[in-house]
Amino acid sequence: MSNQIKIGVVVFPGSNCDQDMVDALSIYENVNVFKLWHKSEDLNNADLIVLPGGFSYGDYLRSGAIARFSPIMKSVIDFAARGGFVFGVCNGFQILCESNLLPGALLHNNNHQFICKNTFIKAEGNATPITQSLKANKAYKIPIAHGEGRFYADEETLKQLNANQQIIFRYCSEEGEVGSTFNPNGAAENIAGVCNATKNVFGMMPHPERAANSLLGNTDGKEIIESLLKNLFGDLVERSAMIETHS
């Protein structure tokens, strides 16, 4: 099929959600998803680069701090500067912040523990491709799994992020209420995800690819992925029979 949407999922040593992301993106007939190796500088003409979750280079030193210096990131940074689309989840989000492709930083959770559980997030407006097709009042059930996921930015940056509509997701209750009680990690202003000023680079701590399969009893994340792809590249065609991969 022509007009395939080409998506490259970067594999760093220590990435462990790369295959999950590939699986979640492989259910569409008009998406061609492939892995990109960290030692290469070739993005293989991808339309969208995805940085998946995991512990790149062991996340020693600081999450994402080493990954930003890998050969592939040199190309990703150039690609983003030219307006290319980049999406980072969890460790991918951390790498994007470390690379200065996204504002802010991700600090240790305020309870100093790794946290893995379902959380609820709410789209902040619909000014970005990733939020554009989401329901304004719906609390999306999306799991988190991180030790360093507390979004931090200084006052001035936060003010700008709000003003420029760069905040894409905030943690909320099951009913959609945003409040400190529903903030799992102490993130500033309950922020779960942001984009850059030019709205071509997106990052979020919760894992939409873990909520993209009815077998797991949750497809809220599929809606987020589809909003992003649809608004960037046009309609998606889902495969009639799900083809799954086993590696």
């Binding site: 999950d20 979640a24 893995c116 690819e209 797991l216």
Partner: peptide, 10 residues
């Protein structure tokens, strides 16, 4: 909750 129980999407 300190263990990743969902990685692997299975």
């Amino acid at each position: 909750e300190q263990y990743d129980s969902m990685v692997g999407t299975g």
